[in-house]
Amino acid sequence: MGQALIEIRHLSKSFQTKEAEITALNDIDLTIEGGDIFGIIGMSGAGKSTLVRCMNMLERPTQGTVLFDGKDLSGLGEQELRKVRRSMGMIFQQFNLLLQRTALENVCFPLEIAGMRQSDAKKRARELLDLVGLSDRAESYPTQLSGGQKQRVAIARALATDPKALLCDEATSALDPTTTQSILSLLRDINRRLGLTIVIITHEMSVVEKICNRVAIIDESRIAETGLVADIFTKPRTAAARKFVYPGAEGQAVSISKRCMRIVFNGTSSCEPVLAEMILACKAPVNILFADTKNLDGKAFGQMVIQLPEEKDLAQKMFRFIRAKGLDAEEADDYVG
């Protein structure tokens, strides 16, 4: 930990089309430390896929440098670059497995490329399939596997050459929520067990929240904000960051007012997450000032004072929501704890 593994300095990338020059990345500075699970989040078209491809030079940057493990990649020739790429695995949204090879042969592929003997490659590939929990599907072809299984094979394949970093380009975007969770758990497990640095490109905040320790928010070809996930999640400083932390709020800051509401729980079901449902329904945050509730035999008793948003309509909507749930709600402005 602590040692910079991937350093990006003043990186820009533009594409020339017939009509105009399109800037995909504009003056990007980013440091990814060894052992990080680093999230890069952005809307589609923000340039995040181009950024990850600049890290292993699948896309050559127009300007700026990429340092990997202290080595400047922008100056390397094709042959040296191919060697460096072996220490950076990559997985993709569409898995990109070789369809005419079995799972085992897919994992062998990067080892064959690196010139390993076939018997050694097979042995190593079996270990890797075991690591991703797919040893029983070694002889299956990709089309016989589910999406999650395919991504596991892809992960095993990306790890075959003992890389220092794993680049994930929207690796869970084609998967359902349950499979996404299991793939993310596998990635975190690999990060802990092998000390592997992981870079995750995504458009979903839930992915970042679940496993990343650091995050960079990329917006309109620039890094809008970067820092610890916990910091950005609690105190997003830019509109771009708020867009991800409060999806649906369209990036508008909802300011909390002095307007307060006292909710009295008088024996309603404690199984129902009333407050959370209210926040989701009204798409606005509230602040809990005081709470004293008890759960007696599945019934909730007690009271709670919450601070409401400034906007009057929103506050009234919350009152209506709570009352519709059969709870007592009264105005408690200027509440002093």
Partner: peptide
């Protein structure tokens, strides 16, 4: 995408 994956593994 398959070609790109091979390139990312350092294939010539």
């Amino acid at each position: 995408g398959i070609v790109e994956a091979a390139q990312s593994m350092g294939a010539s």
